[in-house]
């Protein structure tokens, strides 16, 4: 990727991409409370930390869907029951290319971004990255003329 001329874009540090504010709960928090926080922060994942603020797990919409909904677990059970432990994190100096590779090789779609002190500075999602591309390439993505082949499913006007 390094030889590409114009997309210096791919070499940019992900710290520059606007990250989502993380939702963080302490280990032992109930699933219900965790989901409430996710909804409040409008984010599809939650980080679980131990008493020293170290990240010990991550739980996502997918985890909740497959591990919790339809299971025998109660909403008061600890989030620890369904989280994925020791999630991968990304260094804030990683490049966009490196993150794309990371998303490419792993099935997760959220990654916590950490600074030099291992502190979480935000969450980068596949969608966030996509939006970054959209903003970077307005001519191809945003500033398009109205396309008659795109059908709206609701009726305008009236």
């Amino acid at each position: 990727m390094g030889t590409s001329e114009s997309p210096s874009f791919w070499e940019q540090k992900i710290g520059l991409v606007s990250l989502q504010k993380p939702a963080i709960v302490k280990s032992g928090t109930s699933i219900k409370e965790a989901v409430q926080l996710m909804q409040k922060k409008k984010i599809g994942c939650i980080l679980v930390v131990d008493e020293n603020e170290n990240i010990i797990g991550i739980a996502t919409d997918g985890d909740l869907m497959h591990e919790f909904v339809g299971s025998t677990l109660s909403g008061d059970a600890a989030i620890d029951n369904i989280m994925s432990v020791n999630p991968k994190t990304a260094d804030k100096n990683a490049t966009v290319t490196e993150i794309v590779e990371m998303f490419y090789h792993n099935k997760f779609r959220h990654i916590p971004v950490i600074d030099e002190n291992n502190k979480v500075i935000g969450i980068l999602s596949v969608r966030g990255l996509m939006n970054y591309i959209a903003e970077h390439m307005p001519a191809e993505v945003l500033n398009l003329p109205p396309d008659s082949s795109i059908q709206s499913t609701d009726t305008a006007g009236g």
């Binding site: 699933i31 219900k32 989901v35 997918g62 919790f68």
Partner: peptide, 11 residues
């Protein structure tokens, strides 16, 4: 989506 289900069922 998954999220629509999770948010509604859990909360």
């Amino acid at each position: 989506t998954e999220r629509d289900i999770v948010m509604n069922v859990v909360l």
